[in-house]
Every structure is written in structure tokens, then in C-alpha cells.
Nucleic acid binder design. Structure first.
Length: 727
DNA sequence: AGCAACCGTGTTTTT
DNA sequence: CACGGTTGCT
């Protein structure tokens, strides 16, 4: 304990009962959590299995577990260190039968859930255009997280009768499919406890101590869970930072941490304000920014390690230059002896990564993108997982309809519609209907299914997967297509086998059901390998809890950061906290960039600089020269939007993005290019000379001095259809 | 039944 | 821009 400061020691050795640790960014929060657990075990005689430590991300849980093992040895394995979702899943796997589900229950992600909503709309004959399935699901999710059942829906929303109907049917459908959505994992656990006091009491007795990380991000349901679990022992130790609450949109309520002292008047409250991560310049900037928020507990970070480099601020003309500036900085950093892996590029929205990826690729800078479209979200992976899901849970109609005719096996819309109707009429899963069907294609499908199903208890998962590939013909059909995209997809399908193998290596006794659960709860951040020498790109949300020597924050423009959709005061405060989180990720050097114009969603727009930049103190900030060595777009050729698809190792390598359920779009490079000085011939305007080319979004604005009609400005993409280059 | 081409629309952040 | 859904052809 000799490396700890007095405040930290106070937190670690706090007496029994409720404890609130308000821990600023970089103040050694995780260390305190770990030391507290070690202290409880060593000094207070608490047994490891009587400790429940909850985190928000899998990565945090893993880090907690590995550091505990280092500290305590093998006994640490008995500590329950999980995310809310993982802990609840574990509780549910044990007792969910009391709620009428079977233990093989399936977990639906946001995408699956939206599809279920869509089916509900169909049943209710409502127009999916009027009731956007994703928005409807967001509504339902919000209500679930606030613990509002369908029957009470209207109390919250006047005139929401149809939404209530959708919500009701949605709940029914999930149950029929023996499925839980993300929110249900928490909701059903609470329900389990409420309906079965003996189960609750079992866990209340089991857990002598509850510790919660990132407490500022808990929502009503999670709050309720914590309160229930600690009601007997009253040993609830929470760590958090109200300034870093960034999940309001997911129902997190900052009230939970702000009112902790009211809730537990006898609580021990400790503030950790000494920062061990960043330079004073970075901290001063962060402090100044966050002071613009009201309703904080009030905290000011400090360090004794010196002021460090000023924060560099760069204004770019457009997003191409912004990206190139970042790439240039990284290149110079590495030329000066630094590592690529020192650098992280953070942004508010995933859509900003594309331009930056292009710039990094152009300079051959190794990078990896965290988040965005996940490996598990690729169409072909979803297909394979769907097969595994129906083997695990035959009632999973959603997954069944996804793959029943993939690859094509003669089961068309009409046949599927018949099965759905009959299943609905009888109130049974679709598989029951298929089993008895005389339809030859359906019978053939059932045979495939049945044969595989017979193997799940006896065959190792990887072999089962091989057999699955074999009997469904999925890979064979891909290979037969013999094109670039299908090859990539086939590779991805094989890559899933590596995931399965790794799961088998990690959990020798792991079942299919557990594998699927691990996939459902997986995120991309935990796949981030800090050991690889590559720059990292991710959203600020993903970056929470991480730190890097050098951080770039890109896209500091009004409408992007803060987001256009977050302009009312409460949302704006959350955006500001997000910015605070971003700034405090940096250890030594922080670069902030913004762009006068930006092409987003296929449209180019001008936006003013973000208000957050004005909230940084001048003395910490230095304007950066826009040092573009060889102007990369000077004699511009329109860059084709050639996306690297899936060559190389399909996952975890830089520069790959899935483009959803359709084949990847590969646009060939346009042959025509106009450069300054070339002579052109236009269908309508005749002969002319190109006098200027400037980049403009994914296009370019070209100026042409025509021989007869004078100078005109044209967009290259449009003009190329009417204009040729004269040789 | 299956495929290709077209149109219209929405697009933050994620356990 | 990129998706989902629809239409129309084979």
C-alpha cells in the first residue's frame, strides 16, 4: 500500500456499510477497487465467493479479474467480477425456469429486436414507415430500463395506444421464442427476485459485499438490482465520476450517483482528485470545460507532474485535409522514434472514421478500428450464428426465418408464410410445423436440422461447426460463386471457427448455449490488443476507461460534437461530459482538429467550430500549423471509394469494415480524371482548359476556361459524363 | 422460386 | 451514401 495516497487508502479501508468513491479521471479508480477487494479478503475475512464486483464493459471485468489474480493468486477466481449483463445471465441460467423460460434461452441484440418489432407491426397491420421499428424498439427499451411494463405504458406517453400494443405483442413474441432482449437480461433478473424472495435471499446471503464500478452509468434497473442485492448486508461500495456519465441515452441516470448520499445518509464519501495520468495542461483544459456544466458534485483534477506540451488545435479546410493532418502528425511521431500504438484517434460518430482510414492507408500507417460494424454483425456470420442458435433453441423463429432458405433450397416466401401462419394459429414455434410438414423442401430442411441437433451434446463445438458447414452447403455455395466478395465471406465463415476454437480452449466445458451467450454479450473493445503496434481509431464512448500517450479528437464542429441531436440543455451537458472523457484519455499530448467543411452521408456541409473549443483556456492551447508536406489533393484525381474488403486475415486487422447484409460495394476507380492544365471537350460548352481543381467532398470542383462560353465551375463527377480529356 | 435493378429513406453514442 | 423493400423479369 506504500504507493497509494492517503485518500486512496481511506477508500480502500473504509468501514462496512455504504461507501461512495468519487474518482476523477485517471485517479487510480481501478486500483482502489482491486485493493478494496484484496483488503476485504485479507483483513476483513470476507471469502472471495462472497464478493460481487460489477463493471460496465467486459474489458473492465477482464482487467479486474486478471489484476485480482495477480494480487491474490488462484483464490481470486471465486470472486464474481462481471458486467451487469454477464452477472444477470449467470443468475438467470440457474433459475429462469421459475419465470417460464427454458435454460436454453436466446439473447436478441438490438438488430434482432428491431426485426421482432417489425413482425409485430405486420401482425397489427401497422405501417412500418409510420412506426419505425428501430425507433419503436428504442421506445420499448427506454420503458424497460425505467421498469415500466406495457400495461403502464400510457402513464408515460399520452396517446401511445398503438405503441402499447406493439410493446405488448413484442413481449409476447420474445417469450414465444424463448428469447430475452438486452434489457430483459436485467429486467428478468429483477422479476426473478421479486417473484421469488427465496432466490433473492440466496444471493443476498451469498454476497457479503457488492462493488460497482462506473456507478454514474447505472440506469434505474441496474440501480434497483444493486439496491436489492445489498439490502441485507448494506455493504455497497460504488466508484464513479459524475463528470464521466455518458450513457444517458441508454437510460443511465446521473441521479443515482448524485443522490447516493441521500439514499444512504450514513455513507462514507471519499473524493479522489489527484490524477496520475495526464499533464497539467490537459487537466486544466478538462477542468475548464467541465465547469460549464451545472449539477455536478464539483471536482477539480490536479497532478504534480508538470504542465507538459500545450494542446494543439488544428483547423482544416475540409475533412480530407483534417485526416491528412492527423496522418502527418502520426508519421512524424513515428519518424521521431515513437510508436504507432501510442496514438489514438477519437471521434463522436463512427462515420468519421472512413476519411481518416483513407489518409492512414495512403501513408501506409498501420491502424485498427474498434467498434463500428462488428465481426459478428456481418451477414455471413449472422447466418452461421443463426444456425447455431436454432440448434440451441428450436423456438428461435427469428433466426429460423433468417436461414431457412440460405443457401437457397426451394423454400420461398409463400412456403415460409404458410408455416408462420400455421404456427401463429396453433401458438407453437415454427419448427413444430416444419417437423410435421409434407412439403418436400421443408422435410429436407428438417432432416438437416435433426441430424445436427442429434450431435450437439456429443460432438465438440468445432466439429459440430464443420458438420454444419458441410451439411448446409453454406461454404460450398459461396465457393461456387467464385467471386471476390464470396471468397471474403467464406473466409469470414472459417474465421468464426477460430472464435469457436478459442472459446473451447478457454472454457473446456463450454456448451453451445454458453458460446452463443458469449457472442451475444461480446463487444469489439475487448478485442483491442494494446500490444500490436498500430494506431487505434474508435468512438469516444468506446475509449472510456482507456488511456493513450497521444490522443487526437477529430470533428470538433457544431452539429457533430456536440451532435445536432443533443442541443437541448441536458443532452448538451452529456456531450460536454463526453468531451471531458475524450480529453482525459490523453497522457502526454492532445491534438484537437476541426474542419470548415465536411462530407457526411454523401453530402458536403459547412459547420462552425464546436462551442467546446471556446471553453478551453487559451493558455493551454496552441494553434497548429497545417503542415501538409506534399499537398495530397493538389493535382487531384478523384479517389475511388475502393473499400478494402476481406483479403488478409478477416478480422482484427486494420482497414476492414463490413457493409452489412449486402455484398460489399466495390466501386471501380473512375477512369476519367481532370488535372490542371489539361484540355477538355464538353458536349455543350465545347473546348476548354482546366484552370483549377479543388477537392470537395468525395468529388472535386473543377474550373474550366472554355474557348467560347467563358469560365465555368463544374463538379467533376457530373462533368465527367459530358466531358472528355483531349490528348 | 430466384435474381437483378430500381426507388425512397434515414443517419449518434452501445451494454 | 448505403440500406431495405419492392418490382419485374427469367
Amino acid at each position: 500500500m506504500n504507493k497509494l495516497n492517503p485518500r486512496q487508502i481511506e477508500a480502500i479501508t473504509a468501514p462496512d456499510g455504504p461507501v461512495l468513491v468519487l474518482a476523477g479521471a485517471g485517479s487510480g479508480k481501478t486500483t482502489v477497487l482491486i485493493e478494496r477487494i484484496a483488503y476485504l479478503i485479507r483483513e476483513r475475512g470476507v471469502l472471495p465467493y462472497a464478493i460481487l464486483a460489477i463493471t460496465f464493459t467486459k474489458k473492465a471485468a477482464e482487467e479486474l479479474r486478471s489484476r485480482l489474480t495477480k494480487q491474490l493468486g488462484i483464490g481470486a477466481n471465486d470472486v464474481w467480477a462481471f458486467t451487469f449483463h454477464a452477472a444477470c445471465s449467470k443468475i438467470l441460467r440457474r433459475d429462469i425456469e421459475r419465470l417460464g423460460y427454458t435454460k436454453d434461452f436466446t439473447i436478441y441484440d438490438t438488430d434482432d429486436s428491431a426485426r421482432i418489432v417489425k413482425m409485430c407491426l405486420n401482425d397489427l397491420q401497422l405501417d412500418p414507415k409510420q412506426f419505425n421499428p428501430r425507433a419503436m424498439h428504442a421506445c420499448i427499451s427506454r420503458e424497460k430500463n425505467a421498469d415500466v411494463p406495457p400495461s403502464r405504458y400510457e402513464e408515460n406517453f399520452g396517446g401511445g395506444k398503438q405503441i402499447q400494443e406493439i410493446y405488448t405483442l413484442y413481449v409476447k413474441r420474445l417469450r414465444l421464442n424463448n428469447a430475452l432482449d438486452f434489457d430483459d437480461i436485467l429486467l428478468k433478473t429483477v422479476e426473478l427476485f421479486e417473484k421469488n424472495p427465496d432466490v433473492l435471499e440466496f444471493y443476498q446471503r451469498k454476497f457479503r459485499a457488492l462493488l460497482v464500478d462506473e456507478y454514474q452509468d447505472t440506469n434505474t434497473l441496474q440501480y434497483k438490482l444493486c439496491a436489492m442485492l445489498s439490502a441485507k448486508s448494506r455493504n455497497i461500495f460504488v466508484v464513479g465520476d459524475d463528470d464521466q456519465s455518458i450513457y444517458r441515452f441508454r437510460g443511465a441516470t446521473i441521479e443515482n450517483i448524485l443522490s447516493f448520499e441521500k439514499e444512504y445518509p450514513d455513507a462514507t464519501v471519499i473524493r479522489l482528485e489527484q490524477n496520475y495520468r495526464s499533464t497539467q495542461n490537459i487537466l486544466t483544459a478538462a477542468n475548464n470545460l467541465i465547469e460549464n456544466n451545472l449539477g455536478r458534485t464539483g471536482k477539480s483534477l490536479w497532478t504534480d507532474t508538470g504542465s507538459g506540451q500545450p494542446i494543439s488545435l488544428c483547423r482544416a479546410e475540409n475533412d480530407y485535409y483534417e485526416a491528412d493532418y492527423i496522418a502527418d502528425c502520426i508519421e512524424r511521431h513515428v519518424n521521431g522514434g515513437g510508436k504507432y500504438s501510442d496514438m489514438a484517434i477519437l471521434y463522436r460518430i463512427n462515420a468519421l472514421s472512413n476519411r481518416i482510414e483513407e489518409a492512414l492507408r495512403r501513408r501506409s500507417i498501420p491502424y485498427r478500428v474498434i467498434g463500428g460494424t462488428r465481426f459478428f454483425d456481418r451477414a455471413e456470420i449472422r447466418d452461421m450464428l443463426a444456425y447455431l442458435h436454432i440448434l440451441n433453441n428450436p423456438a428461435d423463429d427469428l433466426r429460423l426465418t433468417r436461414i431457412i432458405n440460405i443457401p437457397p433450397r426451394g423454400i420461398g416466401d409463400k412456403t415460409i408464410g404458410g408455416v408462420i401462419a400455421e404456427a401463429a394459429a396453433k401458438g407453437v414455434p415454427m419448427m413444430d410445423i416444419i417437423k410435421q410438414s409434407a412439403h418436400p423442401a421443408l422435410a429436407r430442411f428438417y432432416k438437416i436440422y435433426e441430424n445436427l441437433r442429434d450431435l450437439i451434446d456429443t460432438m465438440p463445438l468445432t466439429e459440430l461447426y464443420d458438420t454444419l458447414l458441410e451439411t448446409t452447403g453454406y461454404v460450398r455455395v459461396l465457393r461456387e460463386k467464385n467471386d471476390f466478395e464470396s471468397d471474403g465471406r467464406a473466409e469470414n465463415v472459417m474465421e468464426l471457427k477460430s472464435t469457436i476454437k478459442k472459446f473451447g480452449d478457454d472454457f473446456a466445458e463450454g456448451t453451445l448455449s454458453e458460446f452463443l451467450e458469449s457472442v451475444s454479450l461480446a463487444t469489439d473493445v475487448e478485442n483491442y490488443d494494446a500490444g500490436a503496434n498500430a494506431a487505434v481509431l474508435m468512438t469516444i464512448h468506446s475509449a472510456k476507461g482507456l488511456e493513450f500517450p497521444t490522443v487526437f479528437i477529430a470533428g470538433l464542429e457544431e452539429g457533430i460534437f456536440p451532435s445536432l441531436r443533443s442541443l437541448d440543455p441536458m443532452d448538451l451537458e452529456e456531450e460536454r461530459r463526453l468531451c471531458y472523457v475524450a480529453i482525459t484519455r490523453a497522457r502526454r499530448q492532445l491534438h484537437i482538429t476541426y474542419s470548415a467543411s465536411r462530407t457526411l452521408y454523401g453530402q458536403s456541409n459547412y459547420s462552425p467550430v464546436s462551442r467546446f473549443i471556446g471553453e478551453l483556456p487559451n493558455e493551454c492551447v496552441e494553434k497548429a500549423e497545417h503542415a501538409v508536406k506534399a499537398a495530397p489533393y493538389g493535382d487531384m484525381r478523384v479517389e475511388a471509394t475502393v473499400r478494402r474488403t476481406t483479403e488478409g486475415r478477416p478480422y482484427g486487422v486494420s482497414s476492414q469494415r463490413a457493409t452489412g447484409s449486402r455484398p460489399y460495394s466495390v466501386t471501380p476507380s473512375p477512369e476519367v480524371s481532370f488535372t490542371k492544365g489539361s484540355t477538355v471537350n464538353h458536349k455543350a460548352f465545347g473546348r476548354g482548359t482546366v484552370t483549377n481543381v479543388s477537392p470537395m467532398g468525395g468529388d472535386a470542383l473543377i474550373e474550366v476556361a472554355f474557348d467560347t462560353v467563358g469560365t465555368k465551375r463544374l463538379m467533376q463527377k457530373t462533368a465527367s459524363a459530358h466531358m472528355t480529356v483531349e490528348s
